[in-house]
């Protein structure tokens, strides 16, 4: 055990050259006209995809009169922060204090994401690296469950969650998130590239499987941590709780935001501000973790 611990600092995965060395040394068979055509194509779709996002930003800073102008405007002329102050006032007037919605979102996304990361990676390590009975069956059920959505299971899930007595508690949203299949799948695929020799040497020193997972496997799959975190964060951040969270004081921020968004003309300004905030959080998260996520995705492929 002591040796395993001492070795830890030296345990470095072989550099994933393929991922890093994306730039080709020599460009092969490229025609100028082909490149130009592809650029035009990309530019056109780039504008199409970003237009709604740019409009969201633009509307958040438009004064009320510009929001209701004919002909409608795409870009603001006289930017203002009044939409955000409107939002602030609405938040203070709301029946449940706004900070409560925020706290609910933090609890749900925080615990849900953390639990998912731990459960999924603990299950992923044996599936990726060890041999034992029923291994293939278990993993193929997980892969199968990537092929349908939660809509299929919603009604029985409601019954199960009620039977467990956790309906209308945070757990009703958090616990199912722990066992989301995509995270386990991506983590398992990523763990497969850890060299067997690292694990074997620790095992020879008498380390338990839990110790190997905690001290050898986990430190070597940090890019995958980030990927699981952002995918789950996104999912839970966007949830409104639906039928599982009925009490107003348990509802997350997205729910409150969608209520304001439905508020119609009187709240158009606050609504525009809300949309910018909802959008900005996950996008910012992604900007900072992009390279790690791409690194994880390199191993995402399905083998036969």
């Amino acid at each position: 055990m002591a040796t395993a611990e001492a070795n830890q600092d030296m345990l470095v995965l072989p550099k994933k050259k393929e991922v890093k060395l994306a730039k080709r040394t020599k460009k092969l068979s490229r025609s100028a006209s082909g490149t130009a055509a592809l650029f035009v194509f990309l530019g056109f779709f780039g504008v199409f995809t970003s237009m709604p996002l740019v409009l969201t930003v633009s509307r958040a800073f438009m004064p009320l009169d510009e929001l209701f102008l004919f002909p409608p405007r795409f870009f603001f002329r006289n930017p203002t922060l009044s939409n955000f102050s409107d939002l602030f006032i609405i938040m203070q007037e709301s029946w449940v204090p706004f900070s409560r919605y925020f706290l609910n979102s933090i609890i749900i996304t925080g615990f849900g994401t953390l639990g998912h990361l731990i459960c999924a990676s603990m299950a992923a390590y044996p599936l990726a690296k060890n041999e034992f009975p029923f291994k293939n069956v278990l993993f193929s059920i997980v892969v199968l469950s990537l092929m349908f959505t939660a809509h299929v299971t919603a009604i029985p899930n409601f019954l199960i969650i009620s039977a467990l007595g956790i309906n209308n508690t945070y757990l009703a949203v958090i616990l199912p998130a722990f066992s989301a299949p995509l995270g386990l799948y991506l983590m398992k695929q990523f763990m497969e590239q850890i060299p067997d020799s690292l694990i074997e040497s620790a095992r020879l020193d008498g380390a338990s499987e839990f110790f190997i997972w905690r001290k050898i496997v986990m430190p070597n799959v940090k890019p995958a941590w980030l990927t699981l975190i952002i995918l789950m964060f996104q999912g839970l951040w966007a949830t409104t709780g639906g039928v599982f969270l009925r009490s107003e004081e348990l509802k997350p921020l997205t729910f409150a935001m969608s209520q304001i968004a439905l508020g119609g003309v009187a709240r158009a300004g606050a609504n525009a501000a809300v949309m910018l905030i909802t959008m900005a959080v996950p996008i910012t998260f992604f900007v900072f973790s992009q390279s790690k996520i791409i690194e994880t995705m390199a191993t995402s492929g399905m083998k036969d």
Partner: peptide, 20 residues
């Protein structure tokens, strides 16, 4: 190995397999 996988798969069977 089974002990490591237990938390995930207990929840997975409860909230995904059983509901189907």
């Amino acid at each position: 190995n089974y002990a490591l996988m237990a938390p995930y798969f207990v929840l997975f069977f409860t909230f995904t397999v059983m509901p189907v």
